[in-house]
Design a protein around this nucleic acid. Structure first.
Length: 151
DNA sequence: GCCAACGTTGGC
DNA sequence: GCCAACGTTGGC
């Protein structure tokens, strides 16, 4: 099993929103960055991911989701009315992909970015790299368990 | 709201 | 293929 981190602005879609979806499952759409897209396509059913809240009062990790459907074309790219519309992505030649994620659990508290930064075991974490803007990224098994120990 | 960092676009 | 201009991300 591999580990990942997925960013979302909670004002747009939070971990609580995911918990309220039917079967606590939703597609993870709107990724429009090639590196992030490639990571989405590497995800396998049963992989786990942290749900990270970005661009909000207390940015940090809010809980855990699992991958329940592997990469398939992101249909929001085909919709001219969608904010993530991309005319260069077509059903015949889809450029962007998404996965389906299921809510596993929300943490009792947000493990804040500030706290992650202060934890030496996480010094090399991709999320904390200078200037990092990726919204989908891998997490190592060591980082995963270190973060769980902070909970 | 500011702005640093980064990715993408497009002229050449 | 270079690189300036532009748009976006996301912490603060």
């Amino acid at each position: 099993m591999n580990y990942w981190l997925l960013k979302s602005e909670p004002e747009a879609f939070s971990i609580a929103d995911l918990a309220r979806r039917p079967r606590r499952t939703e597609h993870w759409d709107g990724v429009r960055n090639y590196q992030a897209r490639n990571y989405l396509r590497e995800m396998r059913r049963g992989d786990h991911a942290f749900f990270y809240h970005s661009n909000c009062a207390v940015p940090g990790i809010a809980g855990i989701v699992s991958i329940v459907r592997e990469g398939y074309p992101d249909f929001t790219a085909f919709d001219p009315d969608d904010p993530h519309y991309d005319p260069k992505s077509t059903p015949d030649r889809p450029r962007w992909f998404m996965v389906d994620v299921r809510h596993e659990r929300a943490f009792e508290r947000i493990i804040s970015l500030q706290e992650l930064k202060s934890f030496p075991a996480l010094a090399g974490m991709r999320l904390l790299a200078r200037g990092n803007r990726l919204s989908v990224m891998p997490v190592t098994a060591a980082e995963w368990s270190a973060i769980l120990s902070l909970e």
